[in-house]
Design a protein around this nucleic acid. Structure first.
Lengths: 215, 215
DNA sequence: GGGGGGTTACGTACACCGTACGTCCGTGTT
DNA sequence: AACACGGACGTACGGTGTACGTAACCCCCC
């Protein structure tokens, strides 16, 4: 009695589930098949290869984020909302975040956020070139922030609490790091994200004003 | 006649070389051993496992960047210089960049850039909490920018020229994306990086001034 | 000079991976 | 009833990281 008929959707869904439960390294075709109670090669009837499957995962996660865009709001609020919506990925699918961010999607799911962002920036009065620049800047900041949040990028940043405090950084070699150890060890991701976001928004608002003024 | 005695350093060096020549996926213990004309298991006398080896690679790449810090320069210039120095990684070791950025290093090589950055920000008058916040923001932006530059993060951004132009995005569904296709397709990484960097520096300079004023 | 111990190099073996290929079976169509 | 077809599956191949056992070497001490 095959409970359900096995489809690309079901495969992608169990892959996401598996990633969130056991991490991206746990994903293998055999593992997914086992999870579905199915032969390994049956998967290949619905997915051409593992890479495509992972693209499917990225796409699915990305298309789950809820963009509640209010076209009447001030553009700064719309930018804020979109950035925050994007950050939801790190909350809802922390262990898939790296996947979402490191795969280039040519599909509608991948283009939709870009489209919205560009529309918002254009509505703020930026010309095409500026809108693209701003978008790239925001994406860079957001991607970097998400990676830190999900623990991919702690390269010299949060550093495990114990490592930096007990394990002992040599205060002679790294005076600042060791004196700020407590601050470096803790990280309120939401606050940090918002801090940078506000700074960026303020900055491009000023940038826009300057442009306006010199025109 | 063993030309040279095989050491952790030599192993890491050939790993870097291999990555830059053939990409990170080409790296396997067997491949590295072959490259060195050596048995696979001999590597394990100098490196505990593959993961540690990759940490070694990240560390080596990171420690190669040249920070020419001038303590007498204005702090904004110092920040600029440090950020640009970091971006050199993407130039000198493009295919290792992902590795450098996605591994947390507790070693001196990893802590040194943090130390410098914090010192610079402190010298600008920021208190500890602000310095850490600023640092995190810069790191997020820089990491995100590097990933775009080395092609890991084109998730809805540069998008392959042909894909977006010839392959045809539906103009009805994505009016902005398709009308800005040309701008999205090209990307002067250095200019984009500097644009965002200047914006960030200006923003935190203003932030500092505001703080000063209200105190 | 002759052990002996520690370091290093190496081969074999195991469990796991992605997936190409061939086979079988259930179903829908003619 | 006969047939074609698509999906499920088993087997097999070449790859991966690495645990383990073995053998060669060098240096020190007797």
């Amino acid at each position: 009695m095959p409970s359900e008929p096995l489809s690309r959707g079901r495969i992608v869904a169990t892959a996401i589930d598996l990633i969130e439960r056991e991490g991206a390294d746990a994903v293998s075709m055999r593992r997914i098949a086992a999870e579905l109670g199915v032969g390994v090669m049956s998967l290949y009837n619905h997915v051409p290869n593992k890479d495509a499957l992972l693209n499917g995962v990225a796409e699915a996660v990305l298309s789950k984020i809820e963009f509640t865009d209010d076209p009447d709001a001030h553009w700064t609020d719309r930018v804020r909302m979109q950035a925050r919506a994007f950050r939801q990925i790190a909350h809802h699918h922390p262990r898939s975040t790296m996947l979402v961010v490191s795969r280039q999607l040519h599909s509608a799911a991948g283009l939709l956020p870009v489209e919205r962002a560009l529309a918002t920036l254009r509505s703020a009065g930026f010309d095409g070139a500026d809108a693209v620049r701003m978008l790239r800047m925001f994406i860079a900041y957001i991607v970097g922030s998400l990676l830190r949040e999900v623990g991919v990028t702690p390269t010299f940043a949060p550093v495990q609490t114990r490592t930096i405090k007990a394990d002992g950084v040599d205060p002679a070699l790294f005076p600042e790091v060791s004196s700020l150890a407590d601050l470096l060890a803790e990280c309120d991701h939401e606050a940090e994200f918002d801090f940078g976001l506000e700074l960026l928004i303020t900055a491009i608002e000023a940038h826009a004003g300057r442009r306006e003024g010199t025109r």
